[in-house]
Amino acid sequence: MSENEPTYNEAAQRLEAIVAALERGGMGLDETLKLYEEGAALLKICQQELMSAEGRLNELRLEDLEHEFQAQDAQASD
């Protein structure tokens, strides 16, 4: 499913379209409900995307990171 997961931008664009369609109105209740549910799901994806961007700040010396990777490679080849 992760392959089909929309990017933030895709989700945002679809969400805008859904809200615009709902605001235009003129749809049946079933269709309205379906679009609303899709919109709510997209909104959740967007919110999660924002949250998932928060994390650590790593400041690494070039050599330190290189050593870390070298150690990993050595371990992997053992």
């Binding site: 961007a53 928060e54 994390g55 700040l57 790593n58 400041e59 690494l60 070039l62 990171l65």
Partner: peptide, 10 residues
């Protein structure tokens, strides 16, 4: 974007 995840290579 407070707390945005980032790595700095010096």
């Amino acid at each position: 974007w407070p707390g945005l995840r980032r790595t700095v290579i010096e």
